[in-house]
Design a binder for these strands. Structure first.
Length: 257
DNA sequence: ATGGTTGTTCCACAA
């Protein structure tokens, strides 16, 4: 099973790139974030015609997540427990062939001195609790998405540029590690412990892509039962170099499942 | 230090 996660920054603007990429790479499962469209506006026909089943949680203008899968997925929930006041479309959890798979669009959290940063940390606390519950099922679990967390300075080309940013705050990193410490592994670092220069996001501004000024913020977290079957993990940089690219590029992993 | 970009929406906000 090959699974990919990609923040597409508007599925409407990215449909040509996403469609061509699905035809070429043909992953079994694709986790999408930042659809920026309501559920009814998702391009179901185009994606389904490429051989994918679709689960969507959309929202007007912002956020929005989806799970595409060659095998039909069973929806478990499209809400992250723990805050009834949270109406943002950032989470879908499903089952595909006895594997539990979630797509996550974790809040950015900037600016730091607004309510956005505590919202980010609260969301991470809720995700930690959900992740713990899923461990109890003792099944393969893959929690993938745009975590909006630079786990360590080695995951940024210019760490100093991110020192006052929500993506690199010690609290953000501590919450991320708390999820891992319950028993999850981060797929890319598990297989590439010392690799530097591996990024999944390059800002549109200031020539970040041509200068390779990137950060690694899209992650695939795996339960022990999934980690046992992890065979490959890689970043497909090609889509970031295309015309009308998203500012993120896909992170991918293969499992002997 | 500043300015630099993209997408959705409504004349700003989010990233």
């Amino acid at each position: 099973m090959i699974i990919a996660s990609w923040n597409v920054n508007s599925i409407k603007m990215r449909l040509p790139i996403v469609s061509e990429w699905l035809k070429k790479e043909a992953p079994d499962v694709v986790l999408l974030q930042e659809l920026k469209c309501e559920t009814a506006a998702f391009p179901f026909m185009e994606i389904e015609s490429l051989g994918y089943h679709v689960l969507v949680k959309g929202q007007k203008a912002y956020n929005g997540v989806a799970i595409l899968s060659r095998e039909k997925a069973t929806l478990r929930t499209d809400i992250l427990d723990g805050d009834d006041s949270d109406v943002q479309a950032r989470y879908i959890e499903a089952e595909i062939k006895d594997v539990i798979i979630s797509t996550i669009y974790l809040p950015n959290g900037n600016p730091l001195d607004t309510e956005k940063f505590p919202y980010k940390l609260g969301f991470m606390k809720r995700l930690q609790q959900r992740a713990k519950q899923l461990l109890h099922e003792q099944r393969p679990v893959i929690l993938g998405g745009d975590y909006n967390v630079i786990p360590a300075d080695a995951d940024a080309r210019n760490p100093e540029e991110w020192r006052n940013d929500a993506l690199a705050q010690p609290e953000s990193r501590a919450h991320f590690r708390s999820i891992l410490h319950q028993g999850y592994s981060e797929a890319f670092r598990t297989l590439h412990p010392n690799e530097t220069g591996a990024y999944t996001f390059w800002d549109y501004q200031a020539g970040s892509w041509p200068r390779d000024n990137g950060i690694r913020i899209d992650h695939l977290l795996t339960s022990p039962e999934a980690t046992d079957h992890l065979t490959r993990c890689w970043i497909d940089k090609a889509p970031r170099g295309l015309e009308k690219a998203s500012d993120h590029t896909p992170i991918m992993a293969e499992f002997s499942l």
